[in-house]
């Protein structure tokens, strides 16, 4: 079994995405503003001209089951963020978002045109939630993350099904895509296709990066560094006896010149043997 290390150390984008995916629906339902996320042609666009719904409908899921599935999937997709760096991950999500919004806009435009002509409208309803982005991330996952192991089930003489370790992600994505029926199916398919075309270089956007990201992140990291240093010093003052704390109090000064790296708090093991305080006491009495 080979799974990426648990947790979000040095994976800020996945963390933020998961927190947002879980909290935005909660806050929206508490504040009763879920209606903002609905998008369908007939009343909102054709009558009320609420074009901002094209963007807002991609913000939040409205069913708890979809939220759950999306959170699990985003947690699995943290391997992608580790793989292609946070910066590129965020850039790609942004690219997918733009393409999907563009496509939805085009579809709605076509719909309006057809509506004016009085013809059949192929796409009337749009799902609430970032289905297209999740399936886009799924496409990256399938493209980059290698298969760790495969296994067979139902192994009779003539027939077997070979599955691999990515079966969980596949099934969850399928379930999420099926969850709102036809409209979520085609949206998911659209997101997957867009991502696939981007990854394979058919659509532009693979090399695009969010501008000023480095400056922003440096600004943010600078802040966290100073707070962490202060914490450690406070701790070391509180327990001056312990050798471990003393060691840690020394190390931040060592690490301070490295702004990028403070988030993952590189752990060099101390080769010199340091015994915890408790065992030092115990050893004293054992002799």
């Amino acid at each position: 079994m080979s799974i990426p290390p648990s947790g979000f150390r040095s994976l800020p984008i996945s963390k933020i995405l998961i927190v947002l995916t879980a909290t935005i629906p909660l806050i929206s339902s508490l504040a009763s503003i879920k209606y903002l996320y609905y998008l369908s042609l007939s009343p909102f666009i054709s009558e009320y001209q609420q074009y901002w719904r094209i963007l807002s409908s991609q913000i939040s899921f409205i069913n708890e089951s979809e939220v759950l599935l999306a959170v699990v999937l985003l947690y699995q997709f943290r391997a992608v963020e580790r793989f292609i760096s946070s910066y590129r991950y965020l850039s790609m999500i942004t690219v997918f978002w733009c393409y999907n919004s563009l496509l939805i806009t085009l579809l709605i435009g076509t719909d309006l045109y057809l509506n004016r002509l009085g013809l059949f409208i192929p796409v009337d309803k749009f799902p609430s939630g970032p289905f297209a982005i999740i399936t886009g991330l799924y496409a990256i996952y399938k493209a980059y993350i290698p298969v760790t192991y495969t296994f067979d089930i139902y192994h009779t003489e003539n027939y077997k099904i070979t599955l691999n370790d990515q079966i969980l992600v596949n099934l969850l994505t399928l379930q999420l895509t099926l969850s709102q029926g036809w409209c979520s199916i085609w949206t998911g398919f659209m997101g997957y296709t867009v991502a696939w075309l981007v990854i394979n270089g058919v659509l532009p956007g693979l090399k695009w990066r969010i501008p000023f990201y480095k400056d922003l992140s440096a600004l943010l990291l600078n802040k966290t560094t100073s707070t962490e240093g202060a914490q450690t010093v406070a701790l070391s003052n509180g327990a001056a006896d312990s050798t471990t704390f003393a060691n840690r109090a020394v190390s931040p000064n060592d690490e301070d010149d490295d702004r990028n790296n403070i988030m993952n708090r590189d752990e060099d093991e101390d080769p010199a043997e340091t015994r915890p305080l408790a065992s030092q006491f115990l050893d004293t009495f054992r002799r």
Partner: peptide, 19 residues
């Protein structure tokens, strides 16, 4: 190479969070 299965597994075993 983490694009290959072996490198990916090694990186998981070594608990690498950032390439």
């Amino acid at each position: 190479d983490v694009e290959k299965s072996e490198g990916y597994q090694a990186s998981n075993a070594l608990e690498i969070m950032k390439y």
